[in-house]
Every structure is written in structure tokens, then in C-alpha cells.
């Protein structure tokens, strides 16, 4: 539990009425790494992320972001964060550039460097040419990259991405990840990401946590998690994939929990809104 960690959660709990969405989460994300949070629908990933972003109220002492308490120093925490929520959430009634400029303004980018900073953020996600088109004309992949630009414009130290590739085709997915990685190489920022795509987790994350029913059930590098399962199963089985690890951890409870209508609904709504 060092203050050098980008994120530190200790015994984090959050309940929606009877639903204990996060139920004693211990987590530490090291500065500079790409940390993947995996888990079945309803595992509590989004809720955990929303606690860390200060959206949901938590008691003091549970969450630290670069040493700042998420309950007591909200503004300090928010200044260090770039956040892309699970839904596609660009403002369809503005151009791409205006969407990014809004975030530059609310992060106090001074007027004289605002235009250049916004242009750089758009360039970093390869939206320079589409910048002055209305966001409602963007494809899903472009919206995700636009949101990435919105998050990057304030030079955050921690990028929080909640299923950044949800609903994207394979090419758009790769493109989003390439931009995340390129930006990370250039800036050295820490990335906390959730995803349902095991191949992405395997390929792009330095470390993974498998979450289930509000708790972390397994933690390690993709390679480490796989070889751990292999050791348990014995060398006769075929080499396990990350998906096998996922099934092994979450499988027991999957049937009873299944999908979550709320998320499906919000995804649909986004799709409808963006036409």
C-alpha cells in the first residue's frame, strides 16, 4: 500500500440497495502499467471504476489515487484522471473539436494554448481530419477515439477506460488499442481498463485482475495466470488460454448471474441516439 501506486483500494464496498456490487475489493495498480480488470457481467467492474473516479461516494481511507484520498480530495483525484465510461458518450450535437475543447476548458487549459492542445489530442487519436464534423456522424470506433481525446486533453496520469472496445468491430478495436498504446508510450501514463475480450487482455495488459461478485478472485500477469492454471491442471491438459482461466474463476457462479439488462439498455440507447 504505497502512495506511489496509481490506484490503491482497500476493502472497498459499494451496494445498490440489496445488491452488493463491490464487496471487499482490494486492488493496487502500479504506476505506469496497463492494468486489466476482467469479470463477467455484473461482477462490479463498472461500480468499482465509478468509485475510483469519485462518482460514487465512498468512505475515507478506502481509495487512494496517487496518494490522494478519493473521499477527501475529490478535486485532486479528478485532476489526475482521464475517464471514458462504458457507454459511448460524446455529445452528438457538437463537433469532435468542440467536444474536446469543452474538456480542455473544464480542466482550466488557458485560452492561449487551448486550440493547440485540443489539436494535439485529436491528432493523437487520428481524428484531425474529422475534427470539424458533427460527432453524430462518427462511427462507433471514431466516437471511442474522440472520447480518448477528451480524456487525454488534460494530460491525466491515470487513464480509466471502462470497456473501451465495447460494440466495436475487430478493426476498430485494434485501432483503439493502438492509439491507447501509442499515447501511453509517449506519455507514460497508467491505464486501468476493463474488457470482456480475453484476446485484448492477453495482448495489451501488463497485469490482470479477475473480478467476480464484487471481489478479486485472481491476480497476475496474463502469462502467470495461465501457467498457474496449467500447474493446477497438470501438464497433460492442453495449455490453457486466458479464457480458461476466466472460466475457472468465474464459471461456478456464471449461470445464476447472467447478463444485466441495465447495461444492455444503456448501450442500445447510445446506439439509438447516435443514429
Amino acid at each position: 500500500m504505497s502512495d506511489d501506486d496509481a490506484v490503491m483500494c482497500a476493502g472497498l464496498e459499494y451496494a445498490f440497495g440489496e445488491t452488493r456490487a463491490v464487496d471487499g475489493l482490494d486492488l493496487s495498480v502500479t504506476t505506469g502499467e496497463v492494468f486489466g480488470l476482467l469479470g463477467p457481467n455484473g461482477a462490479g467492474k463498472t461500480t468499482a471504476i465509478r468509485c475510483i473516479t469519485t462518482l460514487l461516494p465512498v468512505p475515507a481511507g478506502r481509495i487512494r489515487v496517487f496518494g490522494h484520498d478519493a473521499a477527501k480530495e475529490r478535486m485532486a483525484v479528478r485532476r489526475l484522471l482521464g475517464y471514458v465510461p462504458q457507454q459511448l458518450s460524446a455529445d452528438a450535437g457538437l463537433t469532435g473539436r468542440e467536444n474536446v475543447a469543452l474538456f480542455a476548458r473544464v480542466f482550466d487549459v488557458p485560452r492561449r494554448e487551448r486550440a493547440r492542445r485540443v489539436a494535439q489530442a485529436l491528432y493523437a487519436v487520428d481524428l484531425t481530419e474529422a475534427a470539424d464534423r458533427m460527432a453524430r456522424t462518427y462511427s462507433g470506433g471514431m466516437i471511442r477515439r474522440l472520447e480518448l481525446a477528451q480524456a487525454l486533453v488534460s494530460a491525466p496520469r491515470l487513464l480509466m477506460l471502462d470497456e473501451p472496445t465495447i460494440g466495436l468491430d475487430p478493426i476498430a478495436r485494434t485501432s483503439v488499442w493502438e492509439h491507447i498504446n501509442a499515447v501511453r508510450r509517449a506519455t507514460g501514463m497508467t491505464v486501468l481498463v476493463t474488457t470482456h475480450h480475453m484476446d485484448e487482455a492477453d495482448q495489451y495488459c501488463d497485469r490482470l485482475a479477475l473480478m467476480h461478485r464484487g471481489k478479486i478472485r485472481a491476480l497476475g500477469t496474463p502469462q502467470g495466470l495461465k501457467s498457474e492454471l496449467r500447474e493446477r491442471r497438470g501438464p497433460d491438459d492442453p495449455p490453457p488460454t486466458l479464457e480458461d482461466v476466466f472460466r475457472d474463476v468465474a464459471g461456478r457462479g456464471l449461470d445464476s448471474e447472467g447478463g444485466d439488462f441495465r447495461d444492455v439498455r444503456s448501450t442500445r440507447r447510445t446506439a439509438a441516439r447516435l443514429g
Binding site: 480542466f107 487549459v109 494554448e113 494535439q120 491528432y123 493523437a124 494530460a155 501509442a182 509517449a186
Partner: peptide, 17 residues
């Protein structure tokens, strides 16, 4: 790599609050 051209220099500096 983005850093080389210095084209993203501003994205490395957080704005002053």
C-alpha cells in the same frame, strides 16, 4: 512513436488549476 516530433508536447503537461 508520438513523442519524437514533439507534436504532443502539451499532452504531457497538466494544465495549471
Amino acid at each position: 512513436p508520438l513523442g519524437t516530433a514533439g507534436a504532443l508536447d502539451l499532452l504531457l503537461v497538466p494544465p495549471r488549476p
